[in-house]
C-alpha cells in the first residue's frame, strides 16, 4: 500500500439480510489530507460505508488500511454514554487524562464552550452540547483519519452553523484526513475537498470537488430561484438538473456567462454563481448516473 494512501476500498458488498445495502466496485482510495464529503439520499449507503470501514458490519470484498482501529477517530450518528456521572469523568476515563493536566483538552473544551457542561450528566445536555462532547473527545484522539457521520443532524440552524464554523477553523491548518457524512451541502462546501456520491447503495462518482463540478456542471453555473418569468426568459437556454425551486444555467464559456448575467441584470433578477456547488454536482451526477 502506497505511503500516502490511508485506506482503500474495493469490490465491497454489504448485505442486510437479502438486501444489498452497498456495492462498491471501482477502488475508493482515501489519501493523506483528503477531506471527503459522503453524500446521498437516505438509504444511499453512507452510514453503511462508514460502518464497513470501522468493521461494524459484515462485508465481502477488500478494505485495506495501514491504520490501526485506534488511529481512526469516529463520531457516529448517535453517541450514547452512561448517565451515572458527570460528563467530566466520562471524558477523563476515555481520554485517560485529568482535564486539569491536559492543556490540549482544556483548549478544546474552551474552544467548544463546554466548560459549563462538564458537571452535567450526559442526558441533561442539549443536542448541540451532546455533539460537542463527542467532537471534543474525537478531536483529542488526533487521529490520521477522522470520520464524522451526520454530526449536525437534528440541530437547529444556528447551532449547526456555529458547530461547523468551529470544525472548519479547527481543521484549517491541520493535515488530518476527514470523512464527513452529511445531508447539508453547505457544510461540505466548507469542509470537503473530495466527494463520494452514493445512490441506492451504488457509487455514482468519487473525486475532487472541482473536477466533479467540471464533469457534471461545466465551467460555472448560474443559479436562480425558480419563477415563471425566469422560466420564460431562459426557455431557450440549456439547463442543468436542479431541485424544483431552482433553475441552473450552465456557462460553458465566459461569453455565455456574460450573456446570461447581462440578461439577468437587465431584468433586475437575483442570481448566484458557483464553480463548486455540491447540490448541483449531486443532482447532475445522480441524473446521469455517473456516466458523462
Amino acid at each position: 500500500m502506497e505511503n500516502d494512501i490511508l485506506l482503500s476500498v474495493e469490490n465491497l458488498t454489504v448485505c442486510y439480510g437479502k438486501d444489498v445495502a452497498l456495492q462498491i466496485e471501482s477502488p475508493i482510495l482515501i489519501e493523506e489530507g483528503d477531506r471527503i464529503g459522503i453524500i446521498g439520499s437516505n438509504g444511499a449507503g453512507k452510514s453503511t460505508f462508514v460502518k464497513s470501514i470501522l468493521g461494524l458490519v459484515n462485508y465481502q470484498g477488500s478494505i485495506r488500511t495501514r491504520l490501526t482501529m485506534d488511529q481512526i477517530a469516529t463520531h457516529m450518528q448517535s453517541n450514547e454514554y452512561t448517565d451515572s456521572m458527570a460528563t467530566k469523568y466520562i471524558m477523563e476515563a476515555i481520554l485517560q487524562t485529568r482535564i486539569s493536566r491536559s492543556q490540549k483538552l482544556q483548549e478544546l473544551i474552551q474552544y467548544f464552550e463546554f466548560e459549563d457542561c462538564l458537571r452535567k450528566k450526559y442526558s441533561k445536555l442539549s443536542g448541540g452540547q451532546k455533539q460537542r462532547f463527542t467532537i471534543i473527545m474525537v478531536m483529542m484522539q488526533d487521529a490520521p483519519l477522522t470520520i464524522y457521520d451526520e454530526v449536525t443532524s437534528g440541530l437547529d440552524f444556528e447551532t449547526r452553523q456555529r458547530l461547523v464554523e468551529k470544525m472548519v477553523s479547527w481543521y484549517r491548518d491541520r493535515d488530518s484526513s476527514l470523512c464527513i457524512v452529511s445531508h447539508y451541502y453547505e457544510e461540505l462546501e466548507q469542509l470537503a475537498n473530495k466527494l463520494l456520491i452514493l445512490d441506492k447503495g451504488r457509487v455514482i462518482d468519487y473525486g475532487k470537488k472541482e473536477e466533479l463540478f467540471r464533469k457534471y456542471c461545466g465551467r460555472a453555473v448560474i443559479i436562480l430561484n425558480h419563477s415563471g418569468e425566469k422560466e420564460m426568459l431562459f426557455q431557450s437556454y440549456k439547463k442543468l438538473a436542479s431541485p424544483a425551486h431552482l433553475i441552473a444555467l450552465p456557462c460553458e464559456t465566459e461569453e455565455k456567462e456574460r450573456e446570461i448575467i447581462s440578461l439577468l441584470l437587465a431584468h433586475n433578477m437575483d442570481y448566484t454563481r458557483s464553480t463548486t456547488d455540491i447540490e448541483m454536482i449531486y443532482s447532475n451526477a445522480k441524473k446521469c448516473g455517473g456516466q458523462q
Partner: peptide, 15 residues
C-alpha cells in the same frame, strides 16, 4: 487504569 476504575466505580455507586 485509575481513570477507568474511577469511571466504573462511579457507575457502580450511581445505581
Amino acid at each position: 487504569t485509575k481513570y477507568m476504575i474511577s469511571y466504573e466505580f462511579r457507575n457502580v455507586t450511581g445505581n
